[in-house]
């Protein structure tokens, strides 16, 4: 009996690995191709038909990108917009989600619907009028303009996601703290926040990446090179007359590094499962 179950488990693992392999090829092949390309020389990257591996590995792409573009400034700008965006949208979204999740009030449905609706107008049409608003407040070409814009785009997603997470926390728990003499507001910080931490982190990662990867708003709402974000800087290097593929790929890969670091750092919170221990009543 024991042996059979072991066997079954063993086969299951093979299936998992096989599936994982297929998915990994689909997921990783383009990334692998980007890495390979980034290590080629400019001329080799353009060869027809393409070479599968670099004939001669070179760091040309990385050097070129670094020399041609003020990447440190780009990174600074991206961090200064994506970081606050992640914080603000998660915080504001969290508060709103808590309200919708734990209180019953007439505008509840309307608010959740409205929040989703704000996302339905394509960014193309938002960016023009928003520009006029920014002019009124003298915010054009500032980080704040981008932070506010991205927060508004990310907020609905954050609210919806966090509402889902908060709902999964049993209501008895925060009621218990209420009995202990806390206000609903402190219950939020003492119970809900720690318990839904994985969700909050996931939401933060989401908003961070949204702001990091955006092009249209950064393109239209900044003017000087000193305000340019990483994504905009990269988009600008897809020139009309020349695409330096190795450098473009190198830049795209480097642009991922902060996100990877950010995510790896937070990953343990997402997957730790530490939060569940105390929940069972």
């Amino acid at each position: 009996m024991k042996q059979i179950s072991k066997k079954v488990r063993f086969n299951w693992k093979i299936v998992i690995y096989l599936l994982l392999a297929v998915v990994l090829i689909y997921v990783l092949f383009p990334i692998l191709w980007m890495i390979i390309t980034s290590l080629k020389s400019e001329q080799e990257a353009l060869l027809i038909p393409p070479t599968w591996f670099p004939k001669k590995i070179t760091t040309f792409g990385f050097r070129y990108m670094w020399q041609m573009k003020p990447f440190l400034i780009y990174f600074k700008n991206s961090l200064l917009t994506a970081g606050p965006t992640a914080i603000f949208s998660t915080l504001f979204g969290g508060l709103a989600a808590y309200s919708v999740s734990r209180f019953r009030f007439p505008l509840r449905k309307f608010f959740m619907g409205f929040v989703l609706c704000t996302q339905m107008i394509p960014g193309v049409l938002l960016v023009g009028p928003y520009f006029k608003v920014l002019n009124k407040f003298q915010l054009y070409d500032t980080h704040l303009a981008l932070i506010l814009g991205y927060t508004a785009v990310a907020l609905p997603f954050c609210t919806w996601m966090l509402k889902g997470y908060f709902d999964s926390i049993p209501r008895e728990l925060d009621e218990a703290t209420l009995v202990d003499g806390c206000t609903k507001f402190t219950a939020f910080f003492k119970v809900i926040l720690p318990l839904s931490f994985p969700g909050i982190v996931a939401t933060g990662v989401f908003s961070f990446l949204l702001a990091w990867g955006d092009l249209l708003w950064a393109l239209c709402l900044t003017s000087s090179e000193s305000m340019s974000t990483v994504t905009l800087g990269i988009a600008n290097s897809v020139g009309e007359y020349r695409v330096v593929w190795p450098a473009l790929m190198a830049a795209a890969l480097i642009a991922c590094v902060p996100s990877i670091v950010f995510y790896s750092f937070l990953q343990k919170y997402i997957v730790s499962g530490m939060t569940k221990g105390g929940v069972k009543g």
């Binding site: 960016v127 023009g128 520009f131 393109l219 239209c220 000087s224 090179e225 290097s237 009309e240």
Partner: peptide, 20 residues
Amino acid sequence: EPVAHKDKSNKFIIASEAKN
């Protein structure tokens, strides 16, 4: 104010509409 060729008119339209 560098802008990629494909984005050049987008950016100019938005900025001109906002008179900036």
